[in-house]
Design a binder for these strands. Structure first.
Length: 301
DNA sequence: AACCAGGCGCATA
DNA sequence: TATGCGCATGGT
């Protein structure tokens, strides 16, 4: 299917590699492959048109929501550009969209992310999916997808054939009763017991995503933090990347460095209410655009 | 061979 | 409230 992104800019690479998700990868022909909502998904963009290769084809609304294609990001950029540094970050990282990811997947992924690096985070998440998820992209799906893809240009079938097989992220129910020891194949280290605690609290209803979604930010954050291994940063990642609470403001070490360098007194007034959006531009800016070595690292000189 | 990685829990003052 | 340290694992 083809969808026109509202107000132009949607950049798949910026969106997928700005640190909000861990399962998307670039494949051939300008396509990106990922898994969401239990589907194998291929995406490309050209001149404002977002092409989505997925089966079944009749869920456009779902993908509009997942990719946030109906939000006008130029309004965010315009607001944030009142500040010089944010303006530069927005320019450099144009095309970022905040995905609406599954809450459980986001929670587990960012528990895994703590004191960890991105390649290893992705590896642990992938092993979780391979071990406990459902295999998708079998030959039946492939045939259906190739038929579906015929209107999307000749590039997709090649990209698809090479990357057809994938595993869904397991639902919490699938992991019911799991203990840290059962997660040994993931090689998640000390995070295994955090994952187990999250699974237990989600399945028992102690942590209820619908309730959390309806709560104001502070209350929602506190609820998530009842899970062992979830602090302010992981909680805010869930609130921003799963519930799209734009005032959530995950402070990782990179954002902290930016804050101490540019905003010792806090974000400027133009970011009020959209701190999370500002955070994402800033994070991508220092990690993927600006020379990383040029940012002030450490506390001394 | 130390040091680091999208943090967090716990101990200590 | 504010520091400091250990933590599993894997890559430089």
């Amino acid at each position: 299917m083809e969808i026109m992104a509202n107000a132009g800019e949607f950049d798949p690479a910026r969106t997928f590699f700005c640190g909000q998700c861990f399962r998307w990868k670039a494949v051939s022909g300008g396509w990106y492959a990922g898994v969401a909502h239990g589907r194998r998904l291929f995406v490309s963009e050209n001149g404002g048109a977002v092409r989505i290769g997925v089966f079944p084809e009749n869920e456009e609304g779902l993908w509009r929501e997942y990719f946030d294609l109906d939000t006008d990001y130029s309004e965010y950029v315009e607001r944030l550009s009142a500040d010089e540094t944010l303006a530069a970050a927005c320019r450099a990282s144009a095309g970022i969209h905040i995905l609406r990811q599954d809450p459980f997947e986001t929670l587990i992924s960012f528990i895994i992310s703590q004191n960890n690096n991105i390649p290893r985070i992705s590896g642990i998440v992938e092993r979780l999916c391979e071990t406990f998820g459902d295999r998708i992209g079998g030959s039946g799906d492939l045939d259906a997808s190739c038929g579906m893809a015929s209107g999307l240009g000749s590039e997709l079938p090649a990209a698809l054939a090479e990357n057809a097989e994938a595993y869904t992220f397991p639902a919490a129910k699938r992991l019911e009763g799991i203990e840290a020891g059962d997660l040994a194949p993931l090689r998640a280290g000390f995070r295994a017991r955090y994952i187990a605690d999250a699974v237990e609290k989600v399945n028992s209803g102690v942590v209820d995503f619908d309730e959390i979604n309806a709560l104001p930010l502070d209350k929602a954050r506190e609820r998530l933090k009842t899970i062992v291994g979830v602090g302010d940063k992981v909680a805010d990642c869930v609130l921003l990347f799963a519930f799209r609470k734009t005032d959530a403001f995950p402070r990782d070490v990179w954002v902290k460095r930016i804050m101490s360098e540019y905003y010792p007194g806090g974000l400027p007034a133009c970011a009020k209410g959209i701190e999370g959006i500002a955070q994402q531009y800033l994070f991508d800016y220092v990690r993927n655009v600006r020379n990383v070595k040029s940012i002030h690292v450490g506390n001394g000189e």
